[in-house]
């Protein structure tokens, strides 16, 4: 895990509530137990401590956005959106000679 955003560390949506945060934390602790993955566990624990306290969570919410971030960085961590092409490109594969 390389992300520092606590929501990304726990793998939850920005609007996740207390129950979801806790459930995600327990899931991640099972995935990264402290004896087998201490560094990852520490990140998970720190992320949970930030998000479970509403005041810390709010401070993180207020300060987490960077107005000067490069616009190209908006594409990071974003899966390419599939495009609808119609049937022709798909059917072209069917008639393509196979090696």
């Amino acid at each position: 895990m390389t992300h520092d955003d606590p929501r990304q560390v726990l793998g939850i949506a920005p609007e996740a509530g207390d129950e979801e945060i806790r459930a995600a934390y327990l899931r991640k602790v099972k995935e990264y137990p402290p004896d087998r993955a201490p560094r990852e566990f520490e990140k998970v624990r720190d992320a949970y401590e930030t998000l479970r306290d509403p005041r810390r969570r709010m401070r993180e919410l207020l300060l987490s956005v960077d107005p000067k971030q490069p616009l190209a960085s908006l594409l990071e961590d974003r899966a390419p959106q599939p495009r609808f092409t119609g049937p022709e490109p798909w059917l072209a594969v069917l008639t393509e000679p196979r090696t």
Binding site: P80, Q81, P82, R83, F84, T85, P89, W90, A92, V93
Partner: peptide
């Protein structure tokens, strides 16, 4: 070509 068109 299909992957390029459909994959974004």
């Amino acid at each position: 070509a299909l992957v390029n068109q459909a994959g974004g």
